[in-house]
Write a protein that binds this DNA or RNA. Structure first.
Length: 297
DNA sequence: AATTCGCCCTGTCGGC
DNA sequence: TGCCGACAGGGCGAAT
């Protein structure tokens, strides 16, 4: 579900609430959502630790805990992290608005059958993990082990970090071959894009999602570099894109769906030239593009 | 080494 | 109405 702008929005929202707080108890309601060690050991090992920092790498969230432990959270396709305040009232259930199609909780949500983990904090508040499709996970590691994790080690450049220059991007692309959108999705050259922002970046750069990367010249590589940055920054500025499940930690949704130019717009006129946008399959993912503005080079 | 393809899940929607 | 397949913000492991 969440791509970089959504994960970063969640990080910022949660950070303000949980920094310096103590995890008094963990309650894993669906054991399989904890990886790496048995859920019972996760619960006992996390207990009593203080949250010292909340960081993000690609689409991973890293809670830095006292005693040199790190809680790694990946939200998968439908994961949500929310902050539950003991003094606020729960809004009822998740409601789908017939008008916008958005799933809404006009406030913090009560524990329901998809709420798979509760991280209880001091003062009776808690961080709640909810995940309908169960593709996400939580993992507790020694901080020293984190860097050695294969899933983190093979990640490419952080597109919103200071190291993301055109020169670095060029080096990271190297002699890569294959379809452009597949490259953007696989996190090996640059991280943080998923199905929405890969389509948006291709559109912004005027490149066909099936464009062979090895046949892109310097000018088009530069356009791609600029597009990746622009698309992610805009989305972050709008608090992310809400289509279905994505929520900020306080339950509110993002605003970027209003600004999408490609994703979700199959059959609608291209914002640039008016040609109907087409939908195809690339890397098994639905892909929308403008057949006129985004031709194979 | 690098790329593609099932598969892990639940929920929703459209076609018959 | 119900049943069935397709599809949905991701990424891992096996096959090629």
């Amino acid at each position: 579900m969440p791509e970089l702008p959504e994960v970063e929005t969640i990080r910022r929202g949660l950070q303000a609430k949980v920094l310096g707080r103590t995890l008094v108890k963990a309650d894993i309601r669906l054991k399989k959502q904890v990886r790496g060690l048995p859920a019972a050991r996760f619960e006992s090992q996390i207990k009593g630790r203080r949250i010292e920092a909340l960081e993000r790498r690609a689409k991973f969230l890293l809670f830095r805990l006292s005693g040199d432990k790190t809680l790694l959270v990946h939200l998968g396709m439908s994961g949500q992290l929310s902050y539950w305040d003991h003094s606020r009232e729960d809004s009822g259930r998740f409601v789908v608005s017939p008008l916008t199609g958005l799933q809404r909780t006009p406030g913090q949500h009560a524990v329901d059958k998809h709420t798979h983990a509760l991280l209880h904090l001091d003062r009776g508040d808690r961080v709640q993990y909810r995940d309908t499709r169960q593709f996400g996970y939580l993992r507790l590691l020694d901080t020293a082990q984190v860097e050695a994790l294969p899933s983190l080690r093979r990640l490419g450049l952080e597109p919103l970090g200071p190291g993301f220059t055109f020169e670095a991007f060029e080096r990271s692309l190297g002699a890569r071959r294959g379809m452009l959108k597949a490259l953007l999705l696989n996190q090996s050259a640059v991280v943080g894009l998923g199905n929405i922002y890969a389509d948006e970046a291709c559109f912004e750069a005027g490149l066909h999602p099936r464009q062979p990367v090895e046949r892109l010249g310097p000018a088009r590589r530069r356009a791609l570099f600029a597009a990746v940055t622009a698309v992610l920054e805009q989305a972050l500025g709008k608090g992310g894109t809400t289509f279905r499940d994505y929520r900020q930690p306080d339950g509110s949704h993002g605003l970027n769906q209003e600004s999408l130019k490609a994703y979700g717009r199959a059959g609608l006129p291209c914002p640039r030239c008016g040609t109907p946008m087409r939908k195809i399959l690339v890397s098994q993912r639905g892909t929308v593009f403008c057949p006129r503005c985004q031709r194979l080079k």
